[in-house]
Write a protein that binds this DNA or RNA. Structure first.
Lengths: 346, 346
DNA sequence: TTGAAAGCGCTAACAT
DNA sequence: ATGTTAGCGCTTTCAA
């Protein structure tokens, strides 16, 4: 690794101008003679100069990074710490978030620092990190209703944007999906197929996404003459889909339609259905939610309600960047509309 | 966000000592009077002081971050850029890498900056980032044989540790698995079950992991009187598992054992087998590789060759940290041993 | 053992 | 339009 990194001074000497001028050219500040600009640009080229982020951050008080935080609600038991990331990333959802975030950050010359905040200590660390302005703000993907992080951030007056409205209201910006509409789309699909005995595996009922998808589904079913919909509460995991489907099938062996509140659970449900000799969609039609890679991995491929996760993640970046740029902290939220994607399962 | 962040000076005044002393206490440098140490500690407490990372980095020339790079071999076509992260994280493997890395970084007070390097531009960005010492080093997870990033890093003399030996030798440290042994374990399992007509869906044959798992499998089969093993080359994706199994079943309808070079492909294979009316493991025994969450998601749960990804990732951090600390760049590699995990599929 | 002082490389007034 | 200069907050000689 070279030790003699060129500095602004190096370039300035090379170009025969002052440091300030070089700085102006590099930062694209106006009021620089085009000729000099070119000279500087050449000098940069020749010297192989690249700005020192630390020095720049020190004076601008901008880190040029954002914290990308995946937070849970765990305590400090060692078991929590271990496989949290593995568990979280087992859901294809997070890959899509990362994809959207990285894509949106790139043109803004910012970088995501990945932080897993599953334990009390880890959450403190996140808050500290932001308080010191080691990152300019935080993008938060919270995985539990009881997650204290949003409140902690709000209390500290830190800049953050959440993926999804927090279970307990907090004065923070967020992007979200019109989950209720999503539930409606699922119901309409099953209804239009003529399903008469429909059940659902919901998400966790302590988070808005779980509640609202269920409410939207139920409301629509009720409006179409099916006021009673058996519900198995799930946890957005494949295993909970398996468990939920098993229970529903035992209690309602004659059901002919299922709405699972995410694709992972729908996938688990399909496995159980097949094992029990039910054909999908002929015997039981299944609608998932998310349109994640699990929808394609599933047999048969899932008809599902698409959540535009990548765009939502990009919007988080846009909101955060705006707040960082303007120094404002006004709360915004942006709600995206879901869309039905028809494949084979319903 | 508070504007009046306390600095070293603040603490020094509060404690009635000099900045230098406070710095020493904070950095745990010896030769500080215990009494003064306590005074300083109290002052830090009272003022709520936290060191400014930028200022510290500027003088220490340490960033306190590492780049966690997931790289591919794409060019600059827009299609590449888009869903790379989503595609990559769809493999549960990467969640485990993240888990291991984050866990190992935490006690070292370092943070991972996530970088996706799928395009030429993105790779340049990674190199630049490291050249400027915006990160102290890089942890590289490369997903393609033709990935030019390892060579680029080596050429620049940058500090990096790879997950898995690169397809083309490069002077960089890495951690890896004894893939050949893994292939052997899979073969032994199928042999001990009495499988006589065995086939395999291999990984990509241009990467060591693909080659070596296959070689280990074949060698062992040959040694036990089965010199001919039909091979379908896969790409470590579920879809390629489906395709491979379909082909193998068409060409060898009587096969009774399968080794898939990762769990995702094994999962795809199991789907096909079930659709074709083959019971697993009664008709066809299946052994996967990795022991990822896909092994549990699969029906039936996969007997598989465990790759201790989290530990390997942690070891990457250890190696990198060592190099960063010592300023050395001596090449090391650490090879982990695989282990057979028996579940239901074989 | 502690303090004084010199920067690290950069940006942003302020002068010119 | 360009240069001069004063720090940003920290670590680290060097003296005391």
């Amino acid at each position: 690794m070279r030790e003699d990194m060129p500095t602004l001074e190096t370039v300035a000497r090379e170009a025969g101008v002052s440091r300030a001028t070089v700085s102006r050219v590099i930062n694209g500040v106006r009021n620089v003679d085009p000729v000099i600009q070119e000279q500087v640009r050449l000098a940069v080229e020749r010297t192989g100069y690249v700005p020192n982020r630390a020095a720049r951050s020190l004076v601008t008080r901008r880190a040029g990074t954002v914290a990308l935080v995946v937070s849970g609600a765990g305590d400090d038991s060692p078991s929590e710490q271990n496989a949290f990331a593995a568990r979280v990333f087992a859901d294809p959802f997070f890959g899509r978030v990362v994809s959207g975030v990285v894509g949106a950050l790139r043109p803004r010359a910012m970088h995501p620092v990945l932080m897993m905040a599953e334990t009390t200590a880890a959450r403190e660390q996140v808050v500290d990190y932001l308080r010191h302005r080691d990152a300019d703000g935080a993008l938060i993907v919270s995985t539990h209703a009881a997650d204290p992080l949003p409140d902690m951030l709000a209390a500290e007056g830190l800049t953050a944007v959440l993926f999804a409205r927090p279970a307990r209201p907090a004065p923070l910006s967020y992007v979200d999906l019109a989950h209720h509409d999503g539930g409606r789309l699922a119901a309409e699909r099953l209804l239009s197929r003529g399903c008469r005995r429909v059940a659902t595996i919901s998400g966790p009922l302590d988070v808005p996404a779980g509640q609202d998808r269920l409410a939207g589904f139920r409301d629509t079913m009720a409006r179409h003459g099916q006021p009673y919909v058996p519900v198995a509460e799930g946890g957005f995991t494949l295993a909970s889909g398996v468990a939920g489907m098993t229970r529903l099938l035992t209690e309602h062996p004659d059901l002919d339609g299922l709405f699972a509140a995410n694709d992972l659970m729908a996938q688990g449900a399909c496995q159980v259905l097949r094992e029990r000799g039910r054909r999908v969609p002929q015997d039981v039609a299944v609608v998932g939610f998310d349109d994640s890679s699990a929808a394609l991995a599933c047999r048969p491929p899932l008809t599902t309600v698409r959540q535009p996760v990548e765009e939502m993640a990009a919007e988080m970046v846009r909101l955060l960047h705006e707040q960082v740029q303007d120094g404002t902290r006004d709360l915004t939220s942006r709600i995206f509309e879901p869309e039905l994607v028809v494949r084979e399962s319903a």
